[in-house]
């Protein structure tokens, strides 16, 4: 429970971050959504042993975090919280792929370790990009962008409603859980039976709330269609943002920058 409560706190913290007014925040959400998707696509398109090729891509999160004034330590903490899945699936690689690919003095580095490292790098980049997107854009703006991208309206509305009521329902659920805990002694856990009944109650309340909301909507002329105030204006800077990053991604994807650097240095000391 503490975990979800934290996650819930995170949601509103992200909203605070997204409310800033840095140059990154002011970029049109469409440009940011598109750039983020391109970034992820580029990152995952590397082959599974890629390490050095991925490194230049860190420039994207680095720049976004700096200009966007985002708390790095907080984002890293979030990253570690969700790391276990990638870690536990990836950690098998070193045990399964034992072929030595590098002999480095007494050290033998196997393909498995390399691909494991690559998984962790990909994970950091892709998850980081998603977190940065939400922290620089805000959920409502992302939804407006999705609508512009022709995602079905019903789904966009669904996202907005869900987001609106998460806060209230989590509060209601925690009241139920607290009320049960206050009447439970000796640290007994919640049985499935009790949990089901709590969930059932919560569900009934939720459905009743949906009815009241629907009434409130009808009272203000709801006719099955929700009209949003659209205030997105795409400007030159937005094209520049998306285009510039796309160019950077392509360069980083197709030109092995670390190898160039390496050759350059090695060239100096032949």
């Amino acid at each position: 429970m503490a975990k979800i409560h934290h996650a819930f706190f995170d949601v509103s913290y992200f909203e605070t971050l997204a409310g800033q007014n840095t140059p990154v925040h002011l970029v049109d959400p469409r440009a940011k959504v598109l750039t983020t998707l391109l970034f992820i696509l580029m990152v995952v398109s590397f082959d599974k042993y890629a390490i050095s090729g991925l490194l230049p891509f860190f420039v994207f999160p680095a720049v976004m975090i700096t200009i966007g004034d985002l708390p790095l330590s907080y984002l890293l903490k979030k990253l570690f919280l969700v790391a276990p899945f990638a870690f536990f699936i990836g950690i098998f690689n070193p045990f399964l792929d034992k072929q030595t690919v590098l002999q480095f003095g007494a050290f033998a580095i196997t393909g498995g370790w390399i691909s494991f490292t690559s998984i962790l790098l990909r994970f950091t980049l892709t998850v980081g990009a998603a977190l940065i997107l939400i922290a620089t854009t805000g959920f409502r703006e992302i939804c407006l962008a999705l609508e512009k991208f022709k995602i079905p309206r019903i789904f966009v509305l669904q996202l907005l409603f869900l987001y609106r009521y998460i806060f209230i329902l989590i509060e209601e659920a925690s009241r139920l859980v607290r009320a049960r805990r206050l009447r439970t002694f000796n640290g007994r856990g919640m049985t499935i039976h009790v949990a089901s009944s709590l969930i059932g109650h919560l569900l009934l309340r939720t459905i009743n709330r949906a009815r009241r909301i629907h009434l409130a909507m009808l009272c203000r002329g709801f006719d099955g269609e929700i009209r949003l105030m659209r205030d997105l204006k795409i400007q030159k800077g937005d094209y520049l943002f998306a285009g510039g990053w796309l160019l950077a991604f392509l360069i980083m994807r197709f030109i092995d920058i670390p190898a160039l650097f390496g050759d350059l240095v090695m060239g100096l000391y032949p």
């Binding site: 669904q158 409603f161 009521y165 329902l169 459905i207 949906a210 629907h214 909507m217 099955g224």
Partner: peptide, 13 residues
């Protein structure tokens, strides 16, 4: 329309 959204939030809760 409201029901879907609120029930989605319910699953989180």
């Amino acid at each position: 329309i409201p029901l879907m959204g609120v029930i989605g939030a319910f699953i989180f809760a």
